[in-house]
Write a protein that binds this DNA or RNA. Structure first.
Lengths: 339, 339
DNA sequence: GGCTGGATTGTAAACACTTACAAAATAAAA
DNA sequence: TTTTATTTTGTAAGTGTTTACAATCCAGCC
């Protein structure tokens, strides 16, 4: 059943049917009713491909992310999907992992499917290496590219993010102000804006006049991140003498640190402060519950959608919108009140 | 740039260009190379809409789920997306919540976008009410419908699921065999196959000759599920006298129960056994770690994709594939060895 | 009734592909 | 060399919309 069948049955031309479908006003009430009833009776649905051909858009946005099973990314995807749907757009989801080739291929694929924009969730590109990002710039020639929690300056790229550097800086400073100065920063690849966070930690350490920085990179090996963290930490000799604080780049890593502390009989927060990042549900599962940083994910996603809709409407939109992160103190730390 | 431009530049007909694009074998190597180089030079991408029109497919599958930010659903979506992508299909993601109208609308929308199939993740339809499911049956007239963890018998509907009823039955039986007989079953709407699980609990209780069943339904109010559970439990007077076991329909609920026990000074597992469901990362965050049930999510998703590809290939495929659940004993229970 | 202008409707040309079928070129066989 | 078979290429007809432009209708006015 196509538009011709409908037009025949309704005794009108296909143009009229098209107008009815698209809620065009220039149709008499009588005709509209007649056409609508024929459509209803036959359960006719306009062919989206043909429509896409004619309009050169199918109102679809591509979402590119490394791994939508990651709790934090899943949240982001959800908020973006909901926001876009409210505006009449659908989402083509693409999980790419971290391999550059896959990322590039997926990007091409989305563009060949003629999405109206691509939202990249998570700054899963090498932020410093401009050559590495060439494929994103290339894509932005065709359509606007939205970066959720990513930063990249280019003509048709819009960034919405949280100042994670300041977030980590703040929580690190709170550690230091409370007298904890032997702080280990633990991070991995998947965590958002890894390098920004690391910078925040380093800056806080430096500003406090501490000379030694301690960082630990977790590479995923077992598929069980918590175990990976415990394993990595157990390679330190005299851990409790060496450190009195752990700052993790996400909540799960903090949980791993907590497990390790428990195993060693190190008391948290008495002997060791621990903090996570993301304000995720994971941080609420442990005992004590994990001090974390709220990075305004929902607000970011909301803003990202708003910006995109503005771009579509032809408005001039901000190239970069930055939210600030809030420390959420919980039981794995015992911060001194600031004076 | 379209296929005509390419054909002109390459000095061949559009049919030949089309053949090259589609890897059709009936093209001489010389011609193929020529066309390919023109395509490469100009960065030509075939228009997916026109292609869709001609082929009546765009190799896109709709994924319908209540909420992809839910950790468990996110995992399912991930595995399905990866599986489909391997087979050359893309995913249109639709989070509908639980409102029937939204579900129906989303279904229509996906069908109007001419997806080749719809994968429904989570049995988020009223399993018992056939009228309620009419819209799924209707959709299955157009395209095959895949149910991940859902059961619905109809001509073009394929189900892949885990026997969650048996899973809950097994864990409940283990509680009983270990001498815990005053068991509270806690569940909510979002948990998969709620009613099946409930049946499993009831059957185990009954089979053990216990007359009293205790169930607690958590309705989401605060957005913080853990708090909701703690709140709901705190309404019991003399909780520790009343119950010596809690079986939760997912791991997060079990975490909530654990929090409540801690608050009341009830020792787990000495005074109270607790178990969750899903074998999710949440269960590993708490101390003690939560006994759970592995419901083979990855295997289910993998099988679902395999079945769908079989259907597309025109093979005769099983209408229902059932996996069995495994109890994963951890520190919130101390099961007696079975003899 | 004839005329005018606005509302309504129809015609036909895009849009960019795929593919059946016809035609041409080439290779193999006689 | 001619004939036949096979490979390669081209033509043209679909695929189902949208929309600019043309045509028609009709109420209101003279």
């Amino acid at each position: 059943m196509n538009i011709y069948d409908v037009s025949r049955q309704a005794g009108v031309s296909i143009a009229t049917v098209s107008r009815v479908i698209n809620n065009n006003t220039n149709v008499s009430e009588k005709t509209r009713a007649k056409v609508l009833s024929v459509i209803e009776e036959n359960g006719y649905t306009p062919n989206a491909f043909a429509r896409g051909l004619g309009l050169n858009t199918m109102k679809t946005i591509g979402i590119l992310c490394p791994d939508c099973s990651d709790a934090y990314i899943a949240q982001a995807v959800y908020h973006i999907e909901q926001g876009l749907r409210k505006n009449g757009y659908d989402c083509l989801l693409c999980c790419t992992g971290f391999e550059k080739k896959v990322k590039e291929k997926s990007m091409e694929l989305l563009i060949s499917k003629r999405v109206d924009s691509i939202v990249m969730v998570g700054s899963f590109y090498t932020e410093d290496d401009d050559a590495e990002n060439e494929y994103i710039r290339l894509a932005s020639k065709d359509i606007p590219i939205m970066l959720v929690n990513g930063k990249l300056a280019a003509p048709n790229i819009y960034c919405t993010l949280c100042d994670d550097s300041a977030g980590v800086y703040d929580v690190t400073s709170l550690f230091i102000e409370s007298g904890h100065t032997r702080i280990l920063y633990i991070y991995d690849t998947l965590s958002f804006s890894s390098s920004n966070k690391l910078d925040g930690y380093r800056k806080a350490i430096k500003d406090a006049g501490i000379t030694e920085e301690n960082t630990l990179f977790i590479k995923q090996s077992s598929g069980e991140k918590i175990d990976d963290v415990v394993r990595a930490l157990s390679e330190y000799k005299d851990f409790e003498k060496k450190f009195d604080g752990i700052i993790a780049s996400d909540d799960i890593i903090a949980i791993g640190a907590l497990k390790y502390a428990k195993k060693c009989g190190i008391s948290v927060p008495d002997q060791l402060f621990v903090s996570g990042y993301n304000n995720s549900e994971f941080g609420r599962c442990s005992e004590p519950e994990v001090t974390t940083v709220d990075n305004k994910l929902e607000a970011i996603c909301h803003q990202c959608v708003t910006t995109l809709m503005g771009v579509f409407a032809g408005n001039s939109m901000p190239k970069m919108t930055v939210f600030s992160a809030d420390v959420v103190p919980r039981a794995t730390t015992d911060f001194k009140e600031r004076t």
